[in-house]
Design a binder for these strands. Structure first.
Lengths: 159, 159
DNA sequence: CAGTATCCCAAGCGATACTG
DNA sequence: CAGTATCGCTTGGGATACTG
């Protein structure tokens, strides 16, 4: 991201390229700028989809969890999928939609940063490529697959 | 991220590899799981560093902004840097530390997702490589720079 | 187990006023 | 302009109880 000033905006004070209301990041912040939401999504990616299992892992109250689950389903990030254990009544599990799954890179990048800068102790997890077992890191790349340094990235208004 | 189950955890219910308290993502969620924090960081990356300028852009109250600025500085993400306009008293501007700058990929990834899935209208910004002008996207890569598909990534506990 | 409903309380909010 | 201080007030929290 670095300075993020487009080439042709010389003298004026730095400003967001796009105003807050219509900014994609502002929208994302409104939805994901919440501790519980982030933690629930982490569970979803780990495949923990049931109410009490999520609750046990993240330590939220029923109330807090329920409201976030509503929020995330109405946002189309999770979908409530009914299932029935033999002999039990029907229940919901909350699984990621395609929209939700595409948050993977966000969570992964966040995890990476959190482990590096926030987590002083404890076990860590590494990102690995399944097929080769090689460790993997976040990067930015051109369409043709050339890796670009983060410092060399700027934002530009689309025409 | 995909299923994120390591190869050798066969039958047991899916669980986070690392418990919540010590998870890097949980730490990150505690800090960045806040709407204002995310918006302030966006401003920081755009180079908007002064109290009222930030406030005007994001629409927070003085109180809310002040407390987040305190939070972010004590977390070592921003640093208060005194400056003095000619003839004025000394003031602070809040600039990113190295720890803060390294949140760039997180914000960029979030922006990308927000634009794609949340923002129905309005101008968009594109990520471009400064030197070539080519558009750039988030990716994952091995140490040698080979791009890896997101679906082929798993998490593995470090030993 | 998977929630919903109710209650009470504390944190956090914006508005306003004040200071350097 | 760049904050700090104070103040009601609302939102959202956990705890508890209840239901299918």
């Amino acid at each position: 991201m670095s300075k993020a000033v487009s080439r042709n905006s010389e003298k004026r004070r730095n400003r967001p390229l796009v105003s807050i209301g219509e900014c994609g990041l502002a929208h994302a912040a409104g939805l994901l700028g919440d501790r519980w939401v982030l933690l629930i999504l982490r569970e979803a990616f780990y495949g923990v989809t049931r109410f009490d299992a999520i609750r046990e892992d993240i330590g939220a109250s029923k109330h807090a969890l329920s409201s976030r689950l509503d929020l995330l389903t109405s946002a189309g990030i999770l979908i409530a999928s009914p299932y029935r254990e033999p002999g039990e009544r029907e229940r919901n599990e909350y699984v990621l939609t395609e929209k939700g799954r595409s948050l993977g890179p966000v969570l992964l990048t966040l995890l990476d940063w959190g482990q590096k800068y926030l987590q002083s102790s404890g076990r860590r997890v590494a990102l690995i490529e399944r097929s080769s077992g090689e460790t993997v890191r976040n990067a930015f790349a051109t369409e043709e697959g050339r890796i670009v340094s983060g410092a060399d990235i700027a934002l530009q208004l689309c025409s």
